[in-house]
Write a protein that binds this DNA or RNA. Structure first.
Lengths: 200, 200, 200, 200
DNA sequence: CATGAATGAGAATTCATTCAT
DNA sequence: GATGAATGAATTCTCATTCAT
């Protein structure tokens, strides 16, 4: 078993992910995908109902490990340091999700793809929920201030992660030199920027 | 002066911005733009070299006020509170940029548009630089901790802003209820999440 | 007025009718139509929403005169001879409808085309109704036996017409020599085949 | 003998006939046939040279009994009544041919299929010839008027049969209520519509 | 300046047919 | 014989761009 078909599916998903990353979503045509995968254009449709279906599958395969990893975060509450745990988790998410960001962008640009994706993955809990659960647990343990909203902090952290992961920094500015890595960002968000009381 | 041409250009830019926001970049065809603007398809090419040119102009017109506003931020160092100044600035940026985000997303999805845009706007200083300048000035005044990197903080703040501005929260999660507004996010980033020393 | 567009529309309709008659419905591709009309393939879609729309328009233009002609038949009741009137009407229908039969066949083969056509032309009265009205009027005048059902006779006449109009006689048989013309058929149907009482 | 192959062939022919009747010729793809027959797509080509070959075989199998039945008609001349014999024959033809009409329509729409079919069945005598022979025999017996052309009457009868058998009456009109059955039609054609001398 | 018909390259998708297993 | 993945030419339709009026 595992037949020829599985290898073809893998080639198609690989090609899709690579092309979206390298040439952008609008340029990732079915012809380009087929060519990059080394198969005929028609083959694509034997394995996926249409182009959107292929993209959803690609997103799914790529998201899987990232989501699985984040799912375990809440169990680490109370161990190590909060900063360390969050940095660790977000760094891995960043690494794993590097290939997903272009797809998320594509979904934001193309309503049709967004529809297909949400149709496929009904609202399951994802990283935001896991992060919020973790932060809540740390609050219970007294390791995080009680008056912050775990959900909002989780969203801010992931929004920042997303904003930083967006490929060309030129979108935000030419401050290339001081582009922060994930660890920098986590420290900044967690520790604040240290304003003096007189400045608040 | 201010002939009919200006009115036509305005109608085209308005239509472009509205369509990108409402139906997404991929659906914003030249025909749709012309129709929404109430002009013939060919008219577009009398005012802009091509579709990308129109989009670049739209981005420019929409970005102008936002960038101009941020330019003044450094002069406010030492006045009011740091949190207040940043919240104020970022909130305005968020408001003004609501129409720009779809274009930034489009540029990230379509390399061709990105090329046209960067060709038009050479690397001028933008919000990241202005924010960094402001933070640096506050550091000099002792109102912000000396050991944070102003550039990195600026980028984190803007990345967060960008991440939060991305239209459908479904991209990040179904944590809709606790979706933070800009003020929440600024407070979180500036004050940190209040970890206890033992947790660090 | 009458602009360039009208000429193009005519060329497209002409090409469509000609191709369906000459090479058959399945071979009448949009490319073939455009080529035969001497326009680009995209031009087709400026004038008709899609291929089915073009076909419906072609059917409409071709059916128009035929239907209009039949509409006047009931007013002739009582004039001339019944056989003459029917032969006259059916002969004209046959002539005019020679180009429509391939389309009617196409509609019977391709459900999608049928859907488009019925959507366009809601159930308006057509030749069957007009023929039935005429026969009923002649019955009132005592020129047609009272016990025949005008509706059924109308349908039989048109069904026969349709069956005879179907292009290749090979579908029904190789009796080419004695293929009846419309006048023959009308006489046969109207007068019967003259069976003797003993044979009934 | 009568190995698995025969069963497969039957399943393919059954599926073909069912699909053409239910979804139309254009929708009857090889994939749909294979699926309906419960065999793999490739299997089709183990039993028939190509799609047209399968269709020709389907037509042949379905036409066989109908043609065989009509072949015996001439031997009935002089027995029963003319109207009864013709009604009987045509009714059976209609029943048996219900599944063939869609194929005849397909042949009229798709020249390629027509070519394959005529190549397979060279011009053998068919129902038209048999009907003509029967009518000629009845003329000899004095049961049918001598001055009608048996060939023409045969063709008119079969053309009417074909016209009435065409699936959606919408092709001819919305005169649904008075849609005649075969017996009605035969009576009308045989007896005529009873015009008075003055009307002729 | 404005128009909108015309263009034609290219996109997604289908489908009859082949062939390695 | 049977399978079904793979093929690739062909089809319908889109869309940025041009140009005669």
């Amino acid at each position: 078993m595992a037949a020829r078909g599985d290898a073809t599916r893998d080639k198609l998903l690989d090609a899709t992910i690579r092309l979206v990353r390298e040439v952008g979503y609008t340029q990732t045509t079915t012809r380009a995908i087929a060519q990059a995968a080394g198969v005929a254009e028609g083959t694509l449709y034997r394995h996926y109902p249409d182009k959107a279906g292929l993209f959803v599958a690609a997103i799914g395969r790529q998201s899987g490990p990232a989501v699985a990893w984040a799912r375990d975060l809440p169990t680490r509450a109370g161990t190590g340091t909060v900063t360390g745990n969050l940095t660790d988790c977000l760094t891995r998410l960043a690494t794993l999700r590097a290939d997903i960001v272009p797809f998320e962008l594509a979904m934001l640009t193309d309503p049709e793809l967004a529809r297909a994706a949400t149709a496929a993955h009904a609202a399951e809990p994802g990283p935001p929920e896991f992060l919020a659960q973790y932060l809540h647990a740390e609050q219970q343990l007294g390791r995080v201030r009680a008056d912050v909203d775990p959900g909002k902090v989780a969203v801010v952290l992931l929004a920042t992660l997303f904003g930083l992961a967006v490929p060309p920094p030129q979108a935000i500015g030419a401050l290339g030199d001081s582009w922060p890595d994930i660890a920098d960002a986590v420290v900044i968000v967690i520790e604040g920027i240290g304003t003096t009381p007189s400045a608040n």
